[in-house]
């Protein structure tokens, strides 16, 4: 749809890694009993991904399940399938206490790609992003400079950063500052 505005209007920047707005992704915040089989199954059904362990990011391409808290996951789905996914979740969990809401437009999703991606992350988050401590398959909710953010690594050389829509420009600019040429740290080899 031409009148759908993404938070960053597809902005991109080339530094020693590249920073760009990721393609629009449907997002559903789901709170409930994460040990419940029905909940785990419906998450798999709408995303096609396995259910993650604590702090896990289980992805099948651009779809997946991100573990956000002991009672919360974030589902990544095709943007057009959000209403249908919400219906399926509602049906599957109709007799269980849960909350599922569309947060597609509440968030911005930014791709950081290239060698040195960990160095860029480490400039902004207090989280330990060393390879022994964090890598593909995991999700970290934390802070980027002054705002809340979360990130995961689809591969060793790329990261996806998710933040609130209102601060998308701030986070994008932070990443550009951190990725600006000459700022290579060479810490994570």
């Amino acid at each position: 749809m031409s009148d759908v505005a993404t938070p960053l209007a597809d902005a991109s920047f080339d530094g020693f890694v590249s920073v760009s707005e990721a393609p629009r992704t449907g997002m559903i915040s789901l709170r409930g009993d994460l040990s419940d089989t029905a909940l785990r199954e419906v998450c798999g059904a709408v995303t096609g991904a396995a259910f993650p362990a604590s702090r896990g990011a289980s992805l099948d391409g651009s779809h997946g399940v991100l573990w956000m808290a002991p009672d919360e996951v974030l589902l990544l789905v095709a943007p057009g399938s959000v209403p249908d996914s919400l219906d399926r979740i509602g049906t599957a969990l109709s007799d269980r206490h849960h909350l599922a809401v569309d947060v597609t437009d509440a968030r911005a999703l930014i791709s950081v790609d290239g060698l040195g991606v960990r160095d860029v992350l480490a400039k902004l988050t207090p989280a330990d992003v060393s390879p022994g401590n964090f890598g593909p398959g995991e999700l970290r909710r934390t802070r980027f400079a002054q705002v809340a953010a979360a990130f995961w690594m689809p591969t060793e050389d790329s990261a996806r950063v998710i933040c609130f829509r209102s601060v998308a420009t701030y986070v994008f600019d932070l990443l550009c500052h951190a990725a600006a040429p000459g700022g290579e740290v060479g810490y994570y080899r």
């Binding site: 400039k123 705002v147 609130f164 209102s166 601060v167």
Partner: peptide, 13 residues
């Protein structure tokens, strides 16, 4: 650190 100029403080839009 980075908190100068436009990045001094997050601006919510």
């Amino acid at each position: 650190g980075e908190a100068r100029g436009d990045l001094f403080q997050p601006i919510r839009r």
